[in-house]
Design a protein around this nucleic acid. Structure first.
Length: 193
DNA sequence: TGTTTGATGGGCT
DNA sequence: GCCCATCAAACAA
């Protein structure tokens, strides 16, 4: 079993990486056990030129620092008491990332149910804050790399059919609001909406 | 030190 | 579909 090929995203575009990540598997190992899900929904955040990105204008803060590092690093951040997880893309110095928005549960479903309480199975991982809770991803994962345990990505077959649309929850970002930077597997029932 | 603001989720209508 | 809890990061002062 190998890890996702982060070399190929050195020279690719973040939009292409967002598409390439669909169908790959996100795995988190904890003391409680291993939980994993197939990535079925992503969003691209293309750095300095993208008003919706945390790194818009090249803004470099404690939070966005990791986005300037090499591809494959783990960018987690908190908002509204939830933890969201991103894959850093592009070479050192170019702060772009892909947000993982939804998974289709593959392994450790009982563990996910326990972490998510009385939720229907389709509600376990169909949102960026939900999937981090189901897999046990926290701010402790910030700065790690997706080719190392305990949080990593393994390659998978890309979906046969992919849809795209505007990103979610970025109403106040001018023209960036309309960019079609959200990608998902067509008709997959685990996408967020 | 104080104030503002979300890349959300869950509950209620 | 609408409302809002809740808190760290960011930023102003």
């Amino acid at each position: 079993m190998g890890y996702f090929d982060f070399e190929k995203i050195f020279c690719g575009s973040t939009l292409q990486t967002a598409v390439d990540l669909l169908g790959c598997t996100l795995v988190k190992e904890t003391e409680e056990g291993t939980a994993a899900g197939r990535i079925v929904e992503t969003e691209a955040y293309t750095g300095p030129e993208d008003r919706a990105a945390h790194s818009y204008g090249g803004k470099r803060t404690k939070r966005t620092e990791i986005m300037f590092r090499a591809p494959g690093h783990v960018y987690t951040f908190e908002m509204h008491t939830h933890c969201l997880v991103n894959v850093v893309t592009e070479p050192e110095g170019r702060p772009e990332a892909v947000l993982i928005r939804a998974l289709e549960p593959v392994e450790g479903i009982e563990l996910m149910r326990a972490r998510r309480k009385r939720q229907k199975d389709t509600e376990l991982t169909n949102g960026p804050g939900k999937l981090t809770k189901a897999l046990g991803i926290t701010m402790n994962d910030y700065g790690g790399h997706f080719s190392e345990k305990p949080l990593y990505i393994v390659p998978g077959e890309n979906p046969a059919e992919i849809s795209s649309g505007p990103r979610i929850g970025i109403e106040n970002t001018g023209e960036a609001r309309d960019y079609l930077y959200r990608f998902w597997e067509t008709r997959n029932r685990f996408v967020s909406r």
